[in-house]
């Protein structure tokens, strides 16, 4: 009798205890968790190579693009007061490029900073907290003008085609002594100055390949003879 009594009491007690565990935790938690409670996000921005007074007055802190607001102090540190949630913190300056970061603040006040990935918003790539901001570099707004370089002109094929032959024609005779009759003969044999009989040769050559024949040689002999005279 007594054991039965004790057993039922134990049953009830365990059940009550479990129930309390399940729901009570909720009740206690919701009393602790004020959804509007503000938490502090801390961070520091630094720009190597510039004095603080140069860049701090023009730098603004944007939280979620302006939904909340924070200000930089004179040493580059800042504190932001936000309720729980996930925020994008971005620093803007007209000449410096900062990388935005995402900060999650959970209901217990734990803060986690991670890389901003808009394509995969849930991807977690941890960054240091308290936040550290350093500029990626200068903002580069301008295109460079095409500068005028002599090299560019000289490299263009039109100029090369025009200038190089002239250079050859002028330079090479200067280098060789043209009064020597032998060299003169050589030069003429090079057929540089002769009228272009060579061009048709290509077609001649092709027809030669497919059919035979020596008739063109006679014409050429006559022409050469004429020239020599």
């Amino acid at each position: 009798m007594k054991t039965v009594y004790v057993r039922t009491v134990l049953c009830i007690l365990t059940r009550l205890f479990l129930l309390l565990l399940a729901y009570g935790e909720d009740a206690v938690d919701s009393a602790k968790r004020n959804p509007n409670e503000l938490f502090t996000i801390e961070g520091k921005a630094s720009v190597p190579g510039m004095k603080a007074s140069e860049w701090i007055p023009a730098t603004k802190i944007l939280i979620d693009g302006g939904t909340y607001q924070g200000f930089l102090k004179s040493d580059g540190s800042f504190q932001l007061f936000v309720p729980t949630g996930s925020y994008v913190i971005d620093l803007t300056h007209p000449a410096l490029d900062f990388e935005p970061q995402r900060v999650d603040v959970n209901s217990k006040g734990n803060k986690r900073a991670r890389k901003l990935n808009n394509i995969q918003p849930n991807a977690v790539s941890h960054l240091t907290y308290p936040l550290r901001f350093k500029p990626k570099g200068q903002m580069n707004y301008f295109q460079k003008r095409e500068e005028f370089r002599i090299i560019d002109i000289l490299k263009s094929p039109m100029v090369i085609m025009m200038v190089l032959p002239i250079v050859f024609l002028v330079l090479i005779p200067k280098l060789i002594n043209t009064d020597d009759p032998e060299i003169k003969k050589e030069m003429q044999s090079l057929n540089l100055m002769n009228p272009k009989q060579d061009m048709p040769d290509l077609s001649e050559m092709v027809t030669n390949l497919f059919g035979g024949g020596a008739p063109p040689q006679k014409k050429k002999e006559k022409a050469v003879k004429g020239k020599k005279k």
Partner: peptide, 21 residues
């Protein structure tokens, strides 16, 4: 409540009078 440096306008300190939004 915030305090600013009069010549440069940079924030010196910031205090909220409430801990909720």
């Amino acid at each position: 409540v915030r305090m600013w440096d009069p010549s440069s306008g940079v924030l010196q300190w910031e205090t909220l009078t409430s801990q909720t939004t």
